[in-house]
Write a protein that binds this DNA or RNA. Structure first.
Length: 266
DNA sequence: TTCATTTGACCCTC
DNA sequence: GAGGGTCAAATGAA
């Protein structure tokens, strides 16, 4: 990847990270909304997974390159974190107020107090780690500069999911269905507590189903936002089958253009 | 009884 | 040697 000026790179990382956060939240919403009990993931989820893969690959690349050039200079909330130096595996970091709402199943396997941090760091691995050998992991660290509510969490993801959605949304039903879409609860560091996506540091006013706060409009997001009335009328499954891009090539091409425009802008 | 979480010990990297 | 990451037995909840 061509080198960008440092400040531009950090801006690009920050915007990509926001995009990643919105995509994961959209994925969770789609999963919890989909009534399908099929053996394969809905087309929209498959496309979102591809989009997430593109974004995380870019994020990882940008964070790695920026840290290698100026390891200690980038003090924004997307800098390459300590584990990145320890092991040369693909990692990317986002900061979010909803660290658990990313559409995947996680099992907590550890918690540690980290030197110099007020809050403990929690360690999670994919629930399908054993049966499907999925290597995906993440750590969640509550940030200390909490001058707003809800609190912010730094989430470090490592390795991509290779687990397959087995056509049941049981876990999401259990976890999210008990919480009304507009009911924003307090956030804790345990995986048993979830909050739904909302804009940062804003009031707890009701949010529409597909309200995703963003400054940079991506292809999939604009498509879904414009189609929200259709989704509510016809159901998410009909929307997915009717509006998915016709080919993988089309979708990858759109995402490549979007990512490129993000990078060029900075 | 099963499964997820907690927690302390151990291992690995720097 | 210090500190972060992982393992696995103990514990608790459903």
């Amino acid at each position: 990847m061509a080198a960008l000026p440092r400040s531009h790179t950090s801006d690009a990382i920050e915007h990509l990270s926001k995009g990643y956060e919105h995509l994961t939240q959209l994925r969770a919403l789609l999963l919890s909304s989909s009534p399908a009990k099929t053996s394969t993931a809905p087309p929209a989820i498959q496309l979102l997974d591809k989009a997430l893969h593109c974004v995380t690959a870019t994020l990882s690349e940008l964070q790695t390159s920026s840290s290698s050039h100026h390891a200690s200079s980038i003090e924004n909330n997307m800098n390459c974190t300590e584990p990145c130096k320890r092991r040369r595996i693909q990692r990317w970091t986002i900061v979010t107020s909803v660290p658990h709402f990313d559409g995947y199943e996680w099992r907590k396997y550890g918690e540690k107090n980290i030197h110099g941090h007020k809050f403990p760091r929690s360690y999670y691995k994919c629930t399908h780690n054993k049966e499907q050998g999925c290597p995906a992991r993440k750590t969640i660290q509550q940030k200390e500069d909490d001058d707003c509510n809800p609190p912010k969490y730094e989430v470090i993801y490592s390795m991509h999911h290779i687990c397959k959605i087995m056509g049941t949304n049981t876990h999401l039903d259990k976890k999210y269905s008990s919480t009304p879409i507009n009911n924003i609860s307090s956030t804790t560091t345990t995986s048993s507590s979830y909050v739904l996506p909302t804009s940062n540091c804003q009031t707890n006013s009701p949010q529409p189903l597909l309200t995703l706060v963003t400054e940079q409009v991506c292809p999939m997001e604009s498509m879904l936002l414009s189609a929200e009335p259709q989704i509510e009328e016809n159901g998410i499954e009909n929307f997915c089958t009717k509006t998915s891009p016709s080919t993988d090539l089309d979708f990858d091409s759109e995402w490549a253009k979007w990512l490129l425009s993000c990078t060029k802008k900075f």
